[in-house]
C-alpha cells in the first residue's frame, strides 16, 4: 500500500460507520424515549428520583461501587437472575431514563442492586428510618451482616460528633476499636444518608412493554401469561 490518503479515507469510512451505528443509532432510537404510562392507573415509570436519592447516585459513582455491584437483572436466557429472585423482570434501558450516570456494572463481586430497595422493603418493612439505618450499618461494617464479606468498610462516610439534645436516630454503634467519649455519637455524613436513600430507591419491579413481568404459574398447569403491562409486582400478585 503506497497511497496514504486512500488508506486514510478507508479508515475514516470505517470509523464513521462505527460511530453512526453504535452512537448515532441509539440517539435516533431513543430520541423520543418517554416514561412508560400504565393505562389503568396512569402512573409513569420510571419516576424521577427524589433529590436525596439523586445525590446518592453521585456518591455511588464517586465511591466506584459499580466495580463490584451490578444493577442489571439479566434475562432468563442468559442467567438465572430471575430464578434467584433478583428482580421480577430483566433490566432494560428505560430503567435508567432519568439517571445522569448509568452504571449497570460488568463484574458482580457483590449482590446485584437493581432491586435493592424492593428487596429491603420486602424483608424489613417500610419504616424508612429503619431501612436507612440498616444500610448505614452495612456501609460502616459489612462484615457485621455477612462475615467474611469482600466488601470494605466505609468509615469516611461517618463522623463522631457531640450528641445534641436529642440523639440522632441514624446514629450507629461504633466498633473496630473506635471508642466514643461521653456525650459523643457516631453519625453518618450527608453522603452516607444520600447513598442509603439512593440504594433504597432502586426498584424496577414494574411490568413495562419491552420487559413484561411473567405472571405466576396457574395451579391448573395452564401456560404462563404476561401480566398486564404497567402493573407492579404487588398489583400483579392480586387475584
Amino acid at each position: 500500500m503506497k497511497h496514504g490518503p486512500l488508506i486514510v479515507v478507508g479508515l475514516l469510512v470505517a470509523a464513521a460507520s462505527s460511530w453512526s451505528a453504535i452512537i448515532l443509532g441509539p440517539v435516533i432510537q431513543w430520541n423520543d424515549l418517554q416514561p412508560f404510562k400504565d393505562e389503568t392507573t396512569g402512573a409513569l415509570y420510571p419516576a424521577r428520583r427524589p433529590g436525596l436519592a439523586e445525590q446518592g447516585l453521585e456518591v455511588f459513582r464517586s465511591q466506584g461501587c459499580f466495580h463490584c455491584h451490578s444493577q442489571n437483572v439479566r434475562s432468563a436466557g442468559l442467567a438465572s437472575d430471575l430464578k434467584q429472585g433478583l428482580g421480577a423482570r430483566r433490566t432494560v434501558a428505560l430503567d435508567f431514563l432519568y439517571d445522569s450516570v448509568v452504571m449497570p456494572g460488568e463484574v458482580r463481586l457483590g449482590p446485584d442492586l437493581a432491586n435493592f430497595g424492593a428487596r429491603a422493603r420486602k424483608g424489613q418493612g417500610a419504616d424508612t428510618n429503619a431501612l436507612v439505618s440498616s444500610v448505614l450499618s452495612r456501609l460502616y461494617n459489612p462484615q457485621s451482616k455477612l462475615p467474611g464479606s469482600m466488601m470494605p468498610r466505609y468509615p469516611w462516610l461517618f463522623e463522631v460528633r457531640p450528641k445534641g439534645s436529642v440523639a440522632d436516630p441514624l446514629a450507629i454503634k461504633p466498633d473496630n476499636g473506635v471508642t466514643l467519649g461521653a456525650g459523643e455519637e457516631l453519625v453518618p455524613k450527608p453522603e452516607a444518608v444520600a447513598l442509603a436513600h439512593y440504594l433504597l430507591s432502586l426498584d424496577s419491579n414494574v411490568s413495562i412493554f419491552e420487559a413484561p413481568i411473567p405472571a405466576p404459574p396457574k395451579p391448573n398447569g395452564a401456560t404462563n401469561e404476561v401480566a398486564n403491562a404497567g402493573a407492579t409486582t404487588n398489583v400483579t400478585s392480586k387475584p
Binding site: V8, L11, A15, W19, A93, D99, S100, V102
Partner: peptide
Amino acid sequence: LLSVLWFGWSFTGAIIAQSSTTSGLLQYIV
C-alpha cells in the same frame, strides 16, 4: 497509521459525545 489516526478520532468523538449529551444512557454507550 491506523492506531494513531483512530485513537485521535475516537478520543475526540467520545469527548464531544460526552459533552454534548446529558443522557446517562448515551454516555454509557459512548
